[in-house]
Design a binder for these strands. Sequence first.
DNA 1: ACAATCCTTGGCTATTTGGCAAAATAGAAA
DNA 2: TTTCTATTTTGCCAAATAGCCAAGGATTGT
Lengths: 106, 106
Amino acid sequence: MDTKTKSRYEAKAKIIKAMSHPTRLFIVDKLSRSEQCVCELTEMVGDDMSTVSKHLSVLKNAGIVSDEKRGTQIFYSLRVPCVLKFFSCVESVLKTNAKEQASLVR
Amino acid sequence: MDTKTKSRYEAKAKIIKAMSHPTRLFIVDKLSRSEQCVCELTEMVGDDMSTVSKHLSVLKNAGIVSDEKRGTQIFYSLRVPCVLKFFSCVESVLKTNAKEQASLVR
DNA sequence: ACAATCCTTGGCTATTTGGCAAAATAGAAA
DNA sequence: TTTCTATTTTGCCAAATAGCCAAGGATTGT
C-alpha cells in the first residue's frame, strides 16, 4: 500500500474510530435529537465530567460534532448527520449475527 | 445509563470499532469488489501475514466478513454490504473538515 | 474582588491494541 | 508417512486508550 493511499485510509479510520466507543455512540445518539451541554450529557452518561469532556473532544477533533459557548455552558451539536446511518447498518449486523447464532443452536 | 442500554451501545461500538483501523478499512474496501484469500490481502496490505490474519479475525468476530476454506486457501468475503455506506459518510466528513480548514485560512 | 458554576487539561494507572517473529495447526500433495 | 503450503496462534514489547482525580481557565452573579 503506497503512502498516499495509506494516509487516506488513516484519515477515514480516524473518523470511524471516533465513533467506536459506547459512550461516544450514546452521545452522538443524544445529539441527533437536540444539542446538549456538557453538564446534561455528563448527567445522562453517568461518568466523570472530565471523562465526558474528553470523549467530546475526540468527536470534535474528528469533525463529527461542533461546540458553541453560551454563557457558562458549552453546547455540543451534531455537525454531520450522516453518521446516524451507522446506526441502522450496525443494527442490521447485530440482527444478522443473532440469526446466525440462532441457526447454530437449532 | 442503565446496564441494558449500556450493553447495547457496547455491542454496537464493537462493530464500529472493527472498522476503525486503516488496514481493516482497506480490507473491507477490497472485499466489497470481490472475495480474497489471506495471501492476496497480505500482498496488497504489505504487512506480515500474521498481522493481516489478526485483522481478519477482528472483522470476522464482529460479523462483518465471513470465511470459506477452499483447498489450502481461505477466502474472505463481505457479509454485510451496508458497511460500505460508512465510506460515503466518512468522505463527506472529510470534505466538510477540509472546507472549514479552507475558510479559516481565508 | 470574591465565590460559584461549567468545562478542559494534566497526571496517573490499568487495560487494550497493533505489530513482528516464532511456533503450532490443518490440509494437499508427494 | 513425510513434506509442503496457507493460515492461525502465541509471546513479547511499544504505543494508544479510558478512566478518575486534582488543578486551572473562563464567565456569571454577589
